[in-house]
């Protein structure tokens, strides 16, 4: 198991590095030389006309030296990759601030919303799914509510939540958890309904287990391995959608940093956001894999 965990951690680090390098490669497709774009992102580049040519040239040269943007595209991408391997994310093109110093608090702020949302989604989803497990009216009601929750735009829910007032972070977590909780509820309900119709449930009942124990002890344990990849995809969904609730509730976080960087064309910050996203998704997937192995001995034996 230790080897599996180390392998997954290495894969997450590699995914983060690859996403960072890919982002720099994509940035080379943008129009204009990199140094000129860096100077423009800083907001100091005057309009391109004859009178401003010397000033523009000086500012572009300064940006090129400051952000290490000399040479061809391949050289810039290679240097970016080498810096990332040394955990040096560089400085923002917009204001020269250290990218790692900017992203640290932003990631913490987003995690303060996304982690409670993930926990809420898992608890509420599993609870709802378990209560509606026997097929019937309650199951149909849960399915219908889940279908509506998945189809409701998070931005709309966030607007309604923001108007209700109260603690912004809690309301943001609730809004963010709605759709994943619905998906998890449907998954758990279906898995438990299948379990209840299986010989394993019959055997547990024959040994004298009550309905609640059959579901909670025997059924949920069987549903857990299937829940692990769903939790990983939920975490990836939350990572992207957190930007929406941050905007609606006027909260700081990764989404706001990414939007500001995208508006300014701030490549070092966007590349770092891509690295965080790539690494986080790989980490979630690896964690789901480890959790599934822990919950299901058959997976451990197969490995």
């Amino acid at each position: 198991m230790t080897r599996t965990i180390l392998t997954r951690l290495a894969a997450a680090a590699l995914a983060a590095w690859a996403a960072y390098v890919l982002a720099w490669a994509l940035a080379e497709a943008a129009p204009g030389p990199a140094a000129e774009r860096a100077a423009r992102a800083g907001g100091v580049l005057p309009p391109d006309d004859a009178g401003t040519a010397p000033v523009r040239a000086a500012l572009i040269a300064r940006a090129e030296a400051r952000f290490d943007l000399g040479g061809g595209a391949a050289a810039r991408i290679a240097r970016a990759g080498a810096r990332a391997a040394r955990l040096d994310l560089g400085a923002s093109w917009r204001d020269g601030e250290d990218v790692a110093a900017r992203l640290g608090p932003a990631v913490a702020a987003s995690a303060a919303i996304a982690v409670p949302a993930l926990v809420l989604a898992l608890l509420v989803g599993a609870g709802l799914g378990a209560t509606a497990a026997p097929r019937g009216r309650r199951a149909r009601a849960v399915d219908a509510v889940a279908a509506l929750a998945v189809a409701t735009p998070p931005a709309w829910l966030a607007i309604l939540g923001a108007d209700a007032g109260g603690d912004g972070r809690l309301a943001a977590a609730l809004v963010l958890a709605a759709a994943p909780a619905a998906v998890i509820a449907v998954h758990v309900r279906a898995a438990l309904a299948d379990f209840l119709a299986s010989p394993a449930a019959l055997a547990a009942r024959a040994r004298g287990a009550g309905g609640g124990r059959v579901l909670a002890v025997h059924g949920l344990r069987l549903a857990l391995p299937g829940l692990a990849p769903l939790a990983a995809s939920t975490a990836a969904y939350l990572l992207g959608t957190v930007a929406v609730v941050e905007r609606a509730f006027a909260l700081p976080g990764l989404g706001r940093v990414a939007l500001d960087a995208a508006a300014a064309g701030d490549v070092p910050v966007l590349a770092a956001v891509a690295a965080i996203a790539g690494g986080a998704v790989a980490l979630f997937t690896g964690a789901a894999d480890v959790a599934a192995r822990l919950a299901d001995p058959r997976l451990r034996e197969a490995a």
Partner: peptide, 20 residues
């Protein structure tokens, strides 16, 4: 597997900013 796992909203925001 790799591309499908990318968070869509964050990907669109980042790529739009990177490529312009």
């Amino acid at each position: 597997d790799v591309v499908a796992a990318a968070p869509p909203l964050l990907t669109v925001i980042a790529v739009q900013g990177l490529v312009g």
